[in-house]
Design a protein around this nucleic acid. Structure first.
Lengths: 336, 336
DNA sequence: TTGTACGCGTTATCAA
DNA sequence: TTGATAACGCGTACAA
């Protein structure tokens, strides 16, 4: 099909290029009758503005980039899904990159994004001065997920600390004293929040947070398996384990199975996010839940607001609550 | 930062615009010394070509669109993940859309993609003349997932039929005769393949595929729950259930739980894809597995080949095998 | 209110 | 081999 341009529309409606453009963009006022004529031409010819030409002119691309650590992690996929719903409603396309938290790939992505998008949503939350600088240099709106915003930007955050507190409260109420925590590296906010909340919550219950019962290394399932195995083979193993991250629960379950430990009889377990495995596994797992769909929506909405704003907007942070969904994976500690 | 254009490079190197462009694009031959000078200027100024201008000129965007039914379905997310790895290696960005198999959204997406991308990967596999037409009209390379290609295009397919055959063979070998199948609507190839393979496989074992034991409605987990509940409340319920789709297994498990049926004692179950729930649930579930990562890679590679091809390429289809991973969710049928 | 003309940054064509 | 120049399609400043 020979592409139809605004020129064709103008010719067909027998008006100038400029007038046709004005009608197409609803800018300035145009004589009602002429407007009718142009609109008819647009429809007849099936005119659609050339996005690249428009972007070149305006500097806007109507595209958003979403940098996600790993799209196969269900809550993150949920984030992408709802963000995309919101964005497409406003005619924005969504560019997705899985970075695997790899610095080089993140930097390459940011570089390529610069020209392609009007704004960015970032989920990789490790602190890294170089990446922070790259993001700051971008000079475009950024929404941070689970990370303090850099520069004049927004953030959507999960109250991971509250989640851990809820979990510790619950376990303590069941009588647990040796509680273990497995989470990601402390260089990222989610793990950091969990670690410090863990410590405070334990103390509040008059318990000593034993350093040997805490592992903060990786959100990866295999790493969690090894961490859990290590904890469970301690001379004095924990009686309860909290998963500080989505993929940690599978690792803990594998470790428990491999040692023939029964949950919750031998070990109480709290998952870091809800999932099919958590709700339908045996036992059904008590989990720390957050509404990732709502977070994705909020991130997209904040970004669009900021992109469309005439006046500068002060940095905003929205903290989303966690909820402890109590199921059957926790019981009283086994008598020593 | 004041954008640096090729004009600036030309001025700095004291050459014409054209020459600078030639060096930047490595097109035509350029005097070695001049080339040196221009390259130096490019580096000094930190020149990066403007993608929009380049796209406007060339008609290429170095972007691929990936239309996925639901990004939160793990195997599909895996597809996106590996496809993106391959694409980004070649400098391509990836536009992702979750369509929810909604016709309107798919059509809108295709329309918006037309201008934004050089090629498309499509996973929604329902037959729909209007969408097929839209895809054909697109006049750009398309790779179809789990669907016969339309026009001069490629497809990556899962051997769903083989998977069902493997499942039926296995269940028959355990002595099952009343085997049920729950899968999606037959308007999509994956379900269609499963249904016909099911019928053939059953007959091959001298069994009658009872229509009342087959449900082909939706891949959705809630729908699967209702379908499974219906089957299990039949006067003569099935002794084994095959999940023909990723999200069907959770539905079946819920239905079994709600009726206090024990797997595999009261009911044998085979999952439609591997997952945390399948491998770590109780019992561990026998599943039909496929390598979705490999499929995503293949799809991306075929698309890039076709985009870069000078000569027309004949339509290709790659069929990926399934493997029955035997675990503990199947046993002999309960004596009637 | 309308039209003319320019520039956004590239790449490609055509002479020199 | 190099350089001037014309598009690509659009939006808008400026003039009418």
């Amino acid at each position: 099909m020979g592409t139809v341009t605004i020129k064709d529309v103008a010719r067909r409606a027998d008006v100038s290029l400029a007038t046709a453009s004005r009608v197409a963009n609803n800018t300035r006022s145009v004589d009602p009758e002429i407007r009718k004529r142009v609109e008819a031409a647009i429809i007849e010819l099936g005119y659609a503005p050339n996005l690249m030409a428009r972007s070149l002119r305006s500097g806007r691309t109507r595209t958003i980039a979403f940098e996600v650590r790993d799209i196969t992690v269900a809550p993150l996929a949920g984030l992408v899904r709802t963000a995309q719903e919101v964005l497409s409603r406003d005619g924005y396309a969504l560019l997705v990159t899985t970075s695997d938290a790899d610095r080089e790939r993140e930097l390459a992505f940011l570089k390529s994004a610069l020209q392609r998008v009007d704004g960015i949503i970032v989920t990789t939350s490790a602190d890294d001065p170089e990446i922070e600088k790259a993001l700051a240099d971008l000079d475009m709106p950024v929404v941070y997920f689970d990370r303090r915003p850099v520069g004049n930007n927004d953030a959507v955050l999960v109250a991971h600390g509250d989640g851990i507190r809820q979990a510790v409260d619950y376990l303590a109420s069941l009588g647990h004293e040796r509680i273990g925590l497995i989470t990601g590296a402390a260089s990222a906010r989610p793990a950091r929040e969990r670690l410090s909340a863990f410590e405070v919550a334990m103390r509040d219950h008059g318990l000593r947070p034993e350093p040997e019962l805490v592992r903060a290394r990786s959100f990866d399932s295999d790493a969690a398996f090894m961490d859990a195995s290590g904890l469970l083979s301690l001379p004095k193993p924990p009686t309860a384990l909290i998963a500080g991250g989505t993929s940690v629960l599978p690792g803990i379950i594998r470790a428990a199975h491999s040692r023939n430990l029964s949950i919750p009889r031998d070990l109480s377990v709290i998952g870091g996010a809800d999932s099919d495995l958590a709700s339908l596994g045996t036992p059904a797992f008590t989990v720390i839940r957050a509404d990732y769909g709502a977070i994705g929506r909020a991130a997209a909405e904040m970004l669009l607001e900021r992109i469309g704003a005439k006046e500068p907007i002060a940095p905003r942070e929205i903290v989303f609550p966690t909820e402890l969904v109590i199921r059957e994976s926790c019981g009283a500690p086994r008598s020593p």
